[in-house]
């Protein structure tokens, strides 16, 4: 039974549609601007002000892939990429493993002590020692300026453990009991039975962690001073925020003279270079993030 819309309803719908179009435009245009600028002529970028909707080029000043050529040949950025991939890869595997073990432990119903483990974990959500005491602990453990500090910090977010635990608790208890009767140990039960049945949740957690780790820079800034260990985001910060000349861009080798013009272009190309993996997988994985928020919200 379709009822015809009233005039005020039609006005609302039109305005609402326009608003939503504007929102979508506003959300995508800054990223589009950066993408287009990254192909633009370096000299024209420095003269241009305002949004760039299409690669800037002009007579004798063509659009260029030159920025990318320089960025790809920059050794420190390549190392940053490798470091980030290490932190993301190893971090994701360990985060998922340890969070699953923790969730498994606190989801055991017929134990005397595991409810206290749950309490120990939950309490850390409400209070923590803060930045400096945590830093001191890592300092005493000589973890400052070590690769592993990047993995250890944020290894087991309480929120993740709770989400995985909720997934584990939803599985029928009879499954594990019969496995136990067959003589399976806890590790076997976890790996062979529980994890495969919760793989949707685990995948969402892995995805959340991986994206957050790829984008994270604060731990690196706090704990690392050795440039060889820097993840991409810290190098990006130097290029974009501090505009420092620390980076070994080989501009002169690539384009001869006129290197100053490239500074701005290189900012744009480095953004795309460092964000490409996220943008490339985003369309395929965004629905999992939506699922992730939903799982999280059920627990609230």
């Amino acid at each position: 039974m379709k009822i015809k819309d009233s005039p005020s309803r039609i006005v609302f719908k039109v305005i609402n549609t326009i608003l939503m179009c504007l929102l979508a435009f506003a959300c995508i245009i800054p990223l589009w601007h950066v993408l287009m600028a990254s192909f633009s002529n370096p000299t024209l970028i420095t003269q241009h002000s305002g949004l760039i909707f299409w690669p800037l080029s002009g007579p004798g000043r063509s659009a260029t892939l030159g920025g990318y050529k320089i960025v790809l040949k920059t050794a420190s950025l390549a190392r940053g990429y490798a470091n980030t991939i290490f932190y993301v890869g190893v971090g994701t595997i360990l985060c998922v493993s340890f969070c699953s073990i923790a969730a498994y432990c606190i989801s055991r119903r017929r134990t005397l002590w595991m409810k206290y483990l749950l309490l120990i974990i939950m309490l850390t959500m409400f209070f923590n020692g803060g930045l400096i005491p945590t830093y001191m602990v890592n300092k005493y453990l000589t973890l400052v300026n070590k690769r592993w500090v990047m993995i250890i910090m944020g290894l087991m977010p309480v929120f993740f453990i709770i989400i995985i635990r909720t997934a584990f608790m939803q599985l029928p208890a009879s499954l594990e009991e019969s496995a136990q009767l067959d003589g399976a140990g806890h590790m076997t039960i976890l790996i062979k039975i529980i994890l495969p049945l919760s793989k949707a949740t685990i995948a969402v957690i892995a995805l959340f962690y991986a994206v957050a780790k790829w984008n994270e820079y604060l731990f690196a800034v706090i704990y690392l001073t050795n440039r060889k260990l820097y993840p991409l985001q810290v190098l990006l910060r130097e290029i974009l925020v501090e505009s420092s000349g620390n980076l070994d861009f080989n501009i002169a080798n690539e384009v001869g003279g006129g290197g100053e013009d490239y500074k701005k272009l290189l900012q744009y190309t480095t953004i795309i270079y460092a964000t490409l993996p996220i943008l490339a997988v985003y369309p395929f994985v965004q629905k999992y993030f939506v699922t992730g928020v939903m799982i999280g919200s059920i627990k609230g």
């Binding site: 959300c27 984008n215 994270e216 953004i271 993030f289």
Partner: peptide, 19 residues
Amino acid sequence: VQTISYMPYFVSVVVICGI
């Protein structure tokens, strides 16, 4: 609209601040 509006959230804070 939804898909586009989620996107900025996944860009790193360093890049956002750079922009």
